[in-house]
Amino acid sequence: MIRVLVAKPGLDGHDRGAKVIARALRDAGMEVVYTGLHQTPEQIVDAALQEDVDVLALSILSGAHPTLVPRIMELVRSNHMDDMLVLLGGIIPDDDVESMEQAGVARVFGPGTDTQDIVQYIRERVSEHE
């Protein structure tokens, strides 16, 4: 069973996209922990730790990804959670994709991504444990 935390760090005003992703992953048979809006990096990483998720899917619309994502990745590493797959979606300018991947994000999914592509990507990357 693949477990995913869908999290919204920062001050985004809505979470429509995150909810669409959460439902798509559920419909693909995954267990999706959803924590709502306005999460701090500390809250997100702590939730991922306690829920022992395979995947952390971040959604950021506000443009604050250059500060939020490195902070989250720093916490991921300091908690020895390097085996967790970290994905990023929302509004991420093309120019920032490389720096996000350097920070430790496995893949950036921009607006208009087919949810099935995300499902397939997760399935391929997470070796199911049973």
Binding site: R23, L25, R26, D27, A28, M30, G36, Q43, D46, Q50
Partner: peptide, 28 residues
Amino acid sequence: SPFSGGAILGDRIRMQESVMDDGVFMRS
């Protein structure tokens, strides 16, 4: 879900205040 076997676990949304504390551990 009886159809996909997946689930949305949303109880953390209303437990934000309490779960950020080393004396608390919450699992969905």
